[in-house]
Design a protein around this nucleic acid. Structure first.
Length: 598
RNA sequence: GCGGGCGUAGCUCAAUGGUAGAGCGCCGGUCUUCCAAACCGGUUACGAGGGUUCGAUUCCCUUCGCCCGCUCCA
């Protein structure tokens, strides 16, 4: 029951994207392939701008984040350690009657009497079916109701006047083979693997199965040691990566929002455990007010860092034109959180397809999740690879020696408990877990620990769609003949706009205008993406650029050539959003534009 | 994966068991002055495969894709 109006908007966006070359369906001429998309000329520029802005804001403008570009296919053990092999492959089964799908491990166990049939016959036509079917009869219900359910099953297969064949009964205890809602038999559990699989090497065998990464983050954890040792960074610091990821989504939907091949921008920001911060600084700073907490401080605990990154990310979105009001926030509840996660804040965008609740509120759909993941990921890789993921912290060792013994004991105990909790949750036998947690707590006293991590993880494609939806505006105008038409203007922030400036000679058939316009175009193109267009009336060329989201238009007219001497070598600059015009000297143009598009 | 709807030109939409049409766009041309102007000319389509038929875009089957719901999922 989606809002028809909203769907119309999505359809317009999809259609515009194709018409203007933002996004095409992958493999279009072969009929397309579900869940895959291609970015056309404008889309490629838009996406590149977004990724570069993210990369620049994360790495080049910060001292404490470095980059990584890892391979897409990695050792398969990584996905075992990360939990993806297990959590991404739930066996599923379907109700044979209603086709409803269940996770096999979530089917409620039931007891009762199973009525089984070898098949059924149409008493009228004589047609016979040999499909076996069983029904679990709930306690207290008459056998007739089981027969009725079975009859429905055969009716769905084309029998009219059902006569059941070969009835047998059997008592079962705690069976998960039946739909708890109607007792109908479920299909055998079938594996569902959300990871795309391939083989490394030309022989396809179980020995060389590998996966296309379902997220870019794991590579960062896996390369943590190498980066830490080579980048001359000390905690806290982060590793950023932009890249493709792949998931065999059950249902790719909503244009590029959920696709099977997508791109992520992920940061893993490694911080000291709170116990270490407290040992060094005496106390741990925690959030006292909402909003951005300002410049990072050495005494921040994970909560400060989490809040800091949420606010940093919001600033990023604001900086590319997504006002705070277009965003939504979702703090994951304890039930939603993974056991190792301490907090996750999702940043949402109100998409045209986002659900509207009964009160008319739109929560939005996820653009990015900022997770405080404790030391789970590095710990997992330490255990699975056998390689230490710990770091040595000189400040901690020095500070620890100066602590009062009771403080040392207190911190060591808290660290011990946290490690013990992790180890037992991940299935380490109790005695071994206690021994290892003790070892970890002893390590802390020597300045060693496994870093904790804050993970802002954003979807590039989702952001592109958000930018398109946010920029999309239809302007309907009626001319003097009463003919009304709707023009589309994509009001991109100049920073993300694919084309920054359109350059036009007012008229195409005047060689002087054309020559001058080309000269202006040449002077701009090295500094920003400029587009030269001489075809059609000037209004049409403005409109074409509006539709592509180009923020500025530059028009060369006879005054540029000196028809009015005081306007010699000046051009008209036209603003996309309101059509306002101003006169700018050609000499000033590059600087004027750069100031507005950077 | 299931159920429902849909698939005709770049876009929006017609018509038809017998050679597929419009508007807009796009390309070219005319025009000395700014928001899809006008005029002239040009351009392009039945998602794919199979079947029924003398003949299928139309009827049937399969398949692919899109939309909605369920399911699933970050």
């Amino acid at each position: 029951m989606a809002e028809p109006k909203e769907n119309v908007l999505m359809e317009k966006i999809v259609s515009l994207c194709k018409r203007r070359g933002f996004i095409f369906q992958s493999s279009d001429i072969y009929g397309g392939i579900n869940g895959f998309w291609d970015f056309g000329p404008l889309g490629a520029e838009l996406k590149r701008n977004v990724k570069e802005l993210w990369w620049h804001s994360m790495t080049r403008f910060r001292d404490d984040v470095v980059g990584l570009e890892a391979s897409i296919i990695m050792a398969p053990q990584i996905w075992k350690a990360s939990g993806h092999v297990d959590t991404f492959s739930d066996p599923m089964c379907d109700c044979l009657l209603t086709k409803k799908r269940f996770r096999a491990d979530q089917v409620e166990a039931q007891s009762g009497v199973v009525y089984s049939y070898t098949g059924a016959k149409d008493a009228t036509s004589g047609k016979e079916l040999n499909d076996p079917f069983s029904v679990l009869l709930a306690q207290g219900k008459p056998p007739e109701s089981a027969r009725k359910t079975a009859a429905q099953f055969y009716q769905l297969r084309g029998l009219q006047n059902v006569e059941l064949l070969g009835e047998t009964t059997e008592k079962v205890e705690h069976s998960t083979r039946f739909n708890p809602e109607n007792g109908a038999q479920l299909t055998e559990p079938r594996p569902f693997n959300l990871m795309l699989q391939t083989w490394v090497g030309p022989i396809q065998s179980d020995d060389n199965v590998a996966y296309l990464r379902p997220e870019t983050a794991q590579a960062i954890f896996v390369q943590f040691k190498n980066v830490h040792e080579t980048a001359r960074q000390k905690l806290p610091f982060g590793i950023a990566q932009v890249g493709k990821a792949f998931r065999n989504e059950v249902t790719p939907r909503n244009f590029i929002f959920r696709s099977r091949e997508f791109e992520q921008m992920e940061l893993e920001f490694f911080i000291k455990p709170d116990e270490a911060v407290e040992a060094i600084h005496g106390s741990v700073a925690v959030p006292t007010a909402p909003g951005h907490p300002g410049e990072p401080q050495p005494n921040w605990g994970w909560q400060m860092w989490h809040q800091y990154w949420v606010e940093e990310r919001v600033r990023f979105y604001e900086g590319i034109g997504l006002a705070r009001a277009t965003l939504g926030f979702h703090l994951q509840t304890p039930e939603e959180l993974a056991h190792y996660a301490r907090a996750t804040t999702d940043i949402l965008f109100k998409f045209p397809f986002s659900k509207v609740d009964a009160a008319g509120n739109v929560a939005g759909d996820e653009l990015e999740g900022i997770a405080a993941r404790s030391d789970f990921d590095l710990s997992q890789h330490e255990r699975h690879s056998g390689k230490s993921m710990g770091v040595f912290d000189e400040d901690l060792r020095t500070a620890w020696g100066k602590l009062a013994p009771e403080k040392q004991a207190d911190l060591a105990e808290r660290y011990y408990q946290a490690r013990l909790k992790y180890l037992t949750k991940t299935g380490v036998p109790e005695a071994k877990a206690q021994a290892e947690a003790k070892e970890d707590a002893d390590g802390l006293a020597k300045g060693q620990y496994i870093p904790h991590v804050i993970e802002p993880s954003a979807g590039v494609d989702r952001l592109i769609l958000a930018l398109l939806a946010n920029a999309f505006s239809g302007i309907t105008s009626t001319d003097e003949k009463g003919k009304s038409e709707t023009r589309v203007v994509l009001k991109f922030h100049p920073r993300v706009a694919p084309v920054k400036v359109g350059v036009f000679p007012l008229l195409k058939n005047k060689p002087e205008l054309v020559a001058k316009a080309k000269e202006v175009f040449q002077s701009l193109r090295g500094q920003m993406l400029a587009f030269y267009d001489e075809a059609g009336a000037i209004g049409r060329r403005y409109a074409r650029q509006d539709e592509a989201g180009t923020p500025f238009g530059v028009t060369i007219d006879f005054d540029t050539l000196g028809e009015q001497p005081e306007l010699l070598n000046t051009v008209t600059v036209r603003h996309r959003d309101d059509g306002a015009q101003e006169r700018i000297a050609i000499a000033d143009l590059p600087a004027w534009l750069l100031a507005r598009v950077k």
